[in-house]
Design a protein around this nucleic acid. Structure first.
Length: 915
DNA sequence: GCAAGGTC
């Protein structure tokens, strides 16, 4: 599909590219020789591709990296004689990292790792490679990407493009697609170049960024918390989480638990022996076994009544044992672990060394089919000289190599095979090399041949059978001692013949649990469930060993460690299948859609971040389950966790779903300077909805209690206000809902989280209309205001107090309200408002507040709309606690002040929205 | 001190 699309676009692309190219250069440049920079994924590939394109006529020179050489040769490019410069990277050139100070674990809450910026940058080790690219591309007109034809290769290609375009933005970019590095393939690739595929690269970027954010957030959170909760056991442990390491751990724990929970069952069966001289042939029961002892005994007694065996049938048929399929990485790892006693990680290390010395082909391959272009005979010929397998190799040559082909191809590398003969290796290197050679010769030879004999007998109605095997030709087994196949002798029987068994017995047994997982089993499970890649299975296993999540029993079987099983069980108890292999199935499907161009990478990133962030927040909410589970296995009492304030979001509780993005939740946060609080969407910065609580809130925590008025499980918030900063009847501590139902609280705070905040498009807090004191924020100012008198009088000589002319504004006390002016240095300085006329020091002073003008405030200073809304005189005290509610209700007593124009309570004619 | 993916 991909190739086809590229090929279709090719003629158009080249036409355009060539025209652009001509436009971009001076005549002198056009007339000069083309210089083309070619970049492969690794040096080895660059060397071979250059070799094929140049026919061996090339010059090698050094780059800045000693591992990545530069090969220069002449070749026709797009019809023009050109100078080709071929070099390489070493896998990914760039990697995602958190920016600057965020690399420090104490710089921010782990929760913020879901959103803080990440950058793609070149690790120190690869700076020399980058320098080579920068130097070389400056003088080139075109860039050809020769990275592997897989997702990662496409992404590495774009990393190369990004680096090159930074210094040569006009460079024209092409993608060469290879299925293997052979002369015909390389020739085909250079003559059918296409554009690189951004979709595929984007999918890898999404995956990488998610892995970093999710891995780092959980790792930092787990580590920092559990080190403190179990200081004696885990003080120095790194307790990591990763999308591959956790499911790998999960497999080990699951098998262990299967064994622990296994309940053995008793069974019974009948066995028949027929011994002549020294050969005892055992016949097995066709019913295999019964779980009912009485029934088995009945059948056994029936056999005993007439024990003569009648031979029903004797079948002889050819039996073959198949030679192995060509060797891929997974099979090498499994075989080395099972047959050579070398674990997967060590095996790969050895194989990489053998590869770098030229003894074997590239050891990271998913391919088990030999490409047609590979000259197998030449490779076999190299082995003829060996004392142990040389004769066998000669036989293979004589018969012609006939590979048994598998079904997998990564379109990048051939199966693992020897590329050079050596007999000078020692120990483990020798073992691995020998295995590769023997496997190679075995898969090119013939299947083992034998003859199987099956004898069916009957004893008084019960049927039994025995089989024998006669090996006719060992074939591949001669060179492959890792497989066992042996003769099994059996007497000569003829159909219709009778004989008397030498022994007839009923035996009992018990079902047994499965074995613990071996490394080979674990690799098979990872492969089956798509955990990691062929190149990384061994590393993930090594990781969970080094983190003490698992250990080895008898140096062979994996058992979970206390830490590993405690973690898995803790997350299971929370209801999160963090250790289950299907957790990322949805992401995998989305990545495929990105590759196909049917889903935007940004959307996938946003959705996946939201999903994992939700899991993270819920984890913090019930993290005690993790403590308990670990405490059980570590046999340690969890120490109560003290949040020292460094990570204010170590415990995060959702308040409600964000009304703006509707994806993630609103959470309570401390401001950066630790002075005050705000409520914001946990999807920041994708969603910037936020609500800033006034400075009078000196402490705020999300309660476990849910609002009884609002639907959807809105969490209440416990507030502590500065002493006497609220209205006189308002308590300093108060638990309430800020979702709109508690209009009084919402008005005091000027926050209503049921609707988007006025600052939802900004990351900065809005400048609030701070008046002289917080007392001036009267929640009831438009709410059933009693006013016993229509006559306002001049009640003071302060400059802030002014005549009200025909507007009649009364405060809650029933007195004429004072007209005051904001004197603080705020956005509202100079603005007038009405307040209670009693002295600020008066204990019975009410908190009435009303802006005197109805001019719109500047956007930044506009208070939450709830503050200005009229509420039609309805009682909105439903959410207050009892003591406060009682006072509040008392304060409503008296008549209602209504507008002369619209007849609605709560405002004056002058302020009437209909005016 | 975090992940997983390339590679040396």
């Amino acid at each position: 599909m991909f190739l086809k699309r590229n090929q279709i676009n090719l003629s158009v692309l080249f036409k355009n590219v060539y025209q652009i190219h001509l436009c971009g250069f001076s005549n002198k440049e056009v007339n000069s020789r083309m210089r083309v920079l070619n970049v492969a994924e690794k040096n080895d590939a660059a060397k071979n591709i250059a070799g094929h394109l140049s026919g061996g006529n090339l010059q090698r020179r050094e780059g800045f990296s000693k591992f990545n050489k530069i090969y220069e040769f002449n070749h026709t490019f797009q019809g023009s004689p050109s100078t080709m410069i071929m070099t390489s990277v070493s896998g990914h050139l760039l990697g995602y990292e958190f920016q600057g100070s965020y690399r420090s674990w104490t710089s921010c809450s782990p929760l913020e790792l879901f959103h803080i910026p990440v950058v793609k940058e070149c690790p120190k080790d690869f700076l020399n490679i980058k320098k080579t690219l920068i130097r070389e591309v400056r003088s080139c007109n075109a860039l050809v990407i020769w990275t592997d034809a897989d997702r990662e290769g496409e992404n590495i290609g774009f990393e190369i493009i990004d680096v090159c375009k930074e210094v040569n933005p006009r460079i024209q970019v092409y993608r060469a697609t290879l299925s293997e590095i052979t002369k015909p393939s390389v020739q085909r690739a250079i003559s059918s170049l296409g554009p690189p595929n951004k979709n595929i690269s984007d999918a890898v970027d999404v995956r990488s960024e998610l892995d970093l954010r999710i891995g780092a957030a959980f790792t930092r959170y787990q580590t920092m918390r559990l080190q403190k909760v179990f200081p004696e056991v885990l003080a120095k442990s790194l307790i990591s989480y990763g999308s591959c390491q956790f499911p790998t751990l999960g497999f080990v724990v699951e098998r262990y638990k299967d064994i622990q929970n296994f309940i053995p069952e008793n069974f019974w069966k009948i066995k028949v022996h027929h011994k002549i001289e020294n050969l005892d042939v055992e016949f097995s029961w066709q019913r295999v076994r019964l779980f009912d002892e009485v029934l088995c005994n009945v059948l056994y007694e029936r056999c005993q009544e007439n024990p003569t065996a009648l031979v029903l049938k004797v079948t002889k048929k050819p039996k073959t044992k198949w030679r192995p399929v060509p060797l891929d990485t997974i099979e090498l790892e499994k075989a080395a672990s099972r047959k050579l006693g070398i674990n997967a990680k060590e095996t790969m290390k050895i194989a990489e060394k053998l590869y770098s010395q030229g003894f074997i082909s590239y050891p990271r391959t998913e391919t088990n089919i030999f490409p047609k272009e590979l000259n197998l005979s030449n490779l076999v010929q190299l082995q003829v000289q060996d004392n142990n397998w040389g004769d066998f190799a000669q036989n293979v040559l004589n018969n012609g190599p006939s590979p048994r082909q598998g079904k997998k191809s990564d379109q990048a590398h051939p199966p693992i095979h020897p590329t050079k003969y050596t007999h000078g290796l020692q120990d483990r290197e020798r073992k691995v090399y020998e295995y590769v050679v023997r496997h190679f010769l075995a898969c090119l030879s013939k299947d083992a041949e034998g003859e199987e004999t099956i004898v069916n007998i009957e004893i008084n109605g019960e049927k039994f059978l025995a089989n024998g095997l006669r090996i006719i030709a060992l074939n591949y087994l001669e060179v492959y001692p890792y497989d066992k196949w042996s003769n099994k002798q059996i007497h000569n029987y003829n159909q219709g013949q009778s004989f008397m068994p030498t022994r007839l017995e009923m035996i009992d047994g018990q079902t047994s649990p499965p074995n613990l997982l071996t490394e080979a089993d674990l690799i098979s499970l990872m492969d089956k469930h798509g955990i990691g890649t062929d190149a990384t299975h061994a590393e993930h296993i090594e990781t969970i060993k080094s983190r003490l999540y698992v250990g080895l029993e008898n140096n062979k079987y994996f058992v979970p460690g206390e830490l590993g099983i405690g973690l898995v069980e803790g997350y299971d108890n929370m209801g999160f299948e963090m250790s289950k292999p299907h957790l990322r199935a949805e992401l995998e499907a989305d990545l495929k859609k990105i590759c196909e161009g049917t889903k935007s990478p940004l959307v996938v990133l946003r959705e996946q971040i939201a999903k994992y962030k939700e899991v993270f927040i819920k984890t913090t909410e019930q993290v005690e389950k993790l403590d308990q589970s670990l405490g059980k296995y570590l046999r340690a009492q969890p120490v109560a966790f003290q949040n020292n304030g460094q990570h204010e979001s170590m415990t995060v509780k959702n308040i409600r779903k964000c009304p703006v993005c509707k994806l993630t939740n609103l959470v309570l946060k401390k401001k950066q300077n630790n002075q005050g609080f705000f409520v914001s969407c946990s999807g920041f910065p994708t969603c910037r909805n936020s609500y800033w609580l006034p400075p009078s809130v000196i402490e705020a925590t999300v309660s476990d209690n849910v609002c009884s008025q609002c639907s959807g499980g809105i969490k209440l918030i416990k507030f502590q206000f500065t002493a006497r900063s609220m209205r006189p009847h308002y308590p300093d501590t108060y638990e309430g809902c800020i979702n709109g139902c508690d209009s009084t609280l919402c008005e005091i705070l000027q926050v209503n989280i049921s609707r988007p905040s006025s600052s939802s498009s900004s990351t900065q807090p809005s400048n609030r209309n701070i008046v002289t004191t917080n007392q001036n924020r009267g929640p009831n100012r438009d709410n059933n205001v009693p006013c016993p008198t229509n006559n306002l009088s001049r009640t003071g000589s302060s400059q802030n107090i002014q005549h009200l002319n025909n507007d009649q504004v009364c405060c809650q006390c029933g007195n004429a309200a004072k007209l005051l002016t904001v004197t603080r240095e705020t956005a509202n300085k100079g603005r007038q408002f009405y307040g209670c006329s009693k002295p600020i020091s008066a204990t019975d002073r009410c908190t009435f507040f009303l802006w005197a003008d109805d001019q719109p405030m500047p956007a930044a200073g506009r208070p939450n709309t709830q503050f200005n809304n009229r509420n039609n005189g309805q009682n909105n005290y439903g959410q207050m606690n009892n003591s406060y509610r009682a006072r509040a209700v008392n304060n409503q007593s008296g008549g209602q002040r209504k507008c002369g124009l619209c007849k609605q309570p709560g405002h004056t004619r002058r302020n009437c929205p209909q005016n």
